[in-house]
Write a protein that binds this DNA or RNA. Structure first.
Lengths: 217, 217
DNA sequence: ACTGAGTTCGAACGAACGTTCGAATCAGCG
DNA sequence: CGCTGATTCGAACGTTCGTTCGAACTCAGT
């Protein structure tokens, strides 16, 4: 309400030729999202001001509001796009693979590859998970739950196949912890690339969770 | 400079009898720290205003500044106290234990027990790790490094004793990820207590890291 | 050259921010 | 009681915050 009819929404207008894959509006918006992601990554959502975002994207303070109606919605757009993309890539990679262990290894590799290739966006996704409110929060929580459910499904399948016993919830959440914590320590000049890290973490996690015996202290 | 000579510092004044373990100043300060910890936990450091802290601690806005000279120093005091305490408890528990696997299990148990018993403080410590600047940041980084080094030491000892091969850095940082991520998911009404969680995570981690074979995919 | 929709901006809004200051209140002791 | 230093507070400081508004610019179609 109170805004121009076509502004501040993702374009639904037809684009005539394939020369430009999206409208000018969408292209400019995603440029802004990219710059905003870097600023949120560096200063945090609350710590970053609209004036910081203006400076980073080279657009005036007022001009930004042509592309989104609030700072909170901007964060939402960043998080939703990032999360949707990683889920979608995962599904494509899992397609056609049936061995449960392979599937879990693919899950970990997909997560870490995307994480390291889009460090800023993934840090914003991990670190600012609680910054959104109400409607924004619940829409994002739905995607998060889907992603979590996929991982739980893979683990349960692996468990059934090999007749193992462990708490799926603790295992999966521990795995997420291992993977997401990366943004606090990964240094591209010191640490290995995503493929090798994924192998190391997969080995630790899978060997840890397999091995039937309860292994009490 | 510009502040009263005794104010805004931890007391070095002698307290005469053992009836009160600290001065009135120190007691009041730690009450404020407790309330501030809850607010920082809920709203984040940047998201929490001094007026929020005033409301939560039942003291006037101006009154707070009698106890610390800036919002940043308040966060520093919280983080330093929390981190110092967990390191100190760890050292006491490790004393006299010589079996490396036992030592690692104790490390994990100590971390998780303290984490769950002081969830708010540990979330502030984990989540607001980048909020401090310059002097404050480096003093805290020193404690963090000491804690990290202790864990690395235990792992190297375990590695030597059993002739294993793995990257200590990746293993230790993965372990920290598993443990610290807890603040994003732990629900006391659903999840087990610290002792059991520590056992489950220890089993996953130790079994994952042991087992000599490289285990390539 | 004119139109009209799409895009950008300078300037300002009221609210909230962290911090300060001087006066008021309190507690303990002569 | 009255004195003294420790503690607390209301009121304000100047700055920065997210957001708004109307005017100006761009540019394809006539």
């Amino acid at each position: 309400m109170g805004s121009p009819s076509t502004a501040a929404r993702v374009s639904t207008r037809p684009h005539r030729v394939a020369s430009t894959p999206a409208t000018r509006f969408d292209r400019r918006l995603s440029e802004i999202l990219t710059h905003a992601t870097d600023v949120f990554c560096e200063k945090g959502y609350e710590g970053a001001s609209m004036r910081d975002l203006s400076r980073a994207s080279g657009m005036s303070l007022a001009g930004l509001y042509y592309y989104f109606e609030s700072k909170e919605r901007l964060l939402f757009l960043i998080q939703k796009h990032t999360f949707t993309t990683i889920v979608q890539r995962l599904k494509a990679r899992l397609d056609g693979v049936s061995d449960p262990e392979q599937q879990v290894r693919i899950f970990i590799l997909n997560h870490l590859e995307y994480f390291l290739a889009n460090q800023a966006a993934m840090k914003v996704l991990s670190h600012e998970a609680e910054a959104l409110k109400n409607g924004f929060a619940s829409e994002l929580a739905a995607i998060k739950r889907e992603y979590y459910r996929i991982c739980v499904g893979l683990m349960e399948e692996l468990k059934r196949e090999r007749g193992m016993q462990f708490s799926t919830r603790i295992a999966v959440l521990s795995l997420f912890g291992m993977m997401n914590w990366i943004y606090t320590w990964h240094n591209p000049r010191v640490d290995a690339d995503a493929k090798q890290l994924a192998n190391e973490m997969s080995d630790i996690f899978l060997r840890g969770v397999m091995t039937s015996g309860k292994g009490r202290r």
